[in-house]
């Protein structure tokens, strides 16, 4: 049986008085890819950012309930520790423009003041870039700036930066929306590889992407988790009319 790695219990998120995520209860199994979808403003990104406590970085943002990582409430943990365990990749590739590819990969260690011997750093860089299928493409240009890479390569570099910290969970907020179809396909292939070692939670507006890459799909609407089921089930026979209307484009 699959074990649960992330569990939200009666999770609520607010921006001031605006209640944007309402009483979400969800179990996320280890080494699965979970797609989170829903119309704009449904609370999916807020929920995602709540998982690694980035939600609270916004002034006036608050949260109630629990997000459990391996049974421990992340709201009780130190945020930095949470973000080491739960990495995040954003919509637009955002490598540090002034850092080399090498330094981008180990930026998490530097920023957290973790000093490593050169051999150890080399190992992490090679390992992380291999995991994101970028090593062969950049191994001879590790000293070049990350911003010299193509959009797809930059996004994989950002994933490598997250992977370098050896997290357990990786959060992706519309990770391919700024990429061309070829780069999108490369990143999607990567998800299949990454899930062998990590649990992936992906917010996406691209329903076909959700169908292609995820094991389970969660559908949010007006802050509520409407339906959460195996992706195959959701895309062939959704239980809730709202889900059916959304995925078939009949939403009004």
């Amino acid at each position: 049986m699959e074990s649960t790695i992330v569990k939200s219990v009666d999770y609520n998120a607010y921006f001031g008085d605006n209640h944007v995520v309402k009483n979400v209860n969800i179990d996320i199994p280890r080494n699965n890819v979970i797609a989170v979808m829903g119309p704009s403003g449904c609370g999916k990104t807020t929920f995602l950012r709540g998982i690694n406590r980035m939600h609270e970085l916004i002034p006036g943002a608050t949260a109630k309930g629990q997000i459990l990582l391996n049974g421990e409430d992340v709201l009780e943990m130190h945020p930095i520790f949470v973000r080491l365990k739960i990495g995040m990749v954003f919509q637009r590739p955002n490598p540090f423009p002034n850092l080399s590819i090498y330094d981008n990969v180990i930026a998490g260690y530097k920023l957290n003041g973790i000093k490593l011997p050169k051999a150890e750093k080399d190992k992490i860089v090679e390992h992380s870039l291999t995991r994101v299928a970028l090593w062969k493409e950049v191994k001879d240009s590790l000293t070049k700036k990350g911003s010299f890479l193509s959009g797809g390569q930059q996004q994989r570099l950002c994933i490598a930066r997250a992977v370098a910290m050896e997290p357990e969970v990786l959060l992706f907020d519309e990770p391919t929306s700024a990429l061309d179809p070829i780069s999108t396909s490369t990143v999607e292939e990567l998800f299949h590889e990454l899930k062998k070692n990590y649990t992936l939670i992906i917010v996406t507006h691209n329903m076909q992407q959700a169908a292609r890459v995820s094991d389970k799909t969660a559908f949010f609407y007006m802050g509520e988790l409407v339906e959460y089921d195996a992706t195959k089930q959701m895309f062939t026979n959704p239980k809730d009319t709202r889900t059916q209307n959304y995925i078939t484009g009949r939403f009004s």
């Binding site: 895309f235 062939t236 026979n237 078939t248």
Partner: peptide
């Protein structure tokens, strides 16, 4: 790329 009831 139809899904759900459209696909069925």
């Amino acid at each position: 790329c139809p899904v759900a009831v459209d696909l069925r």
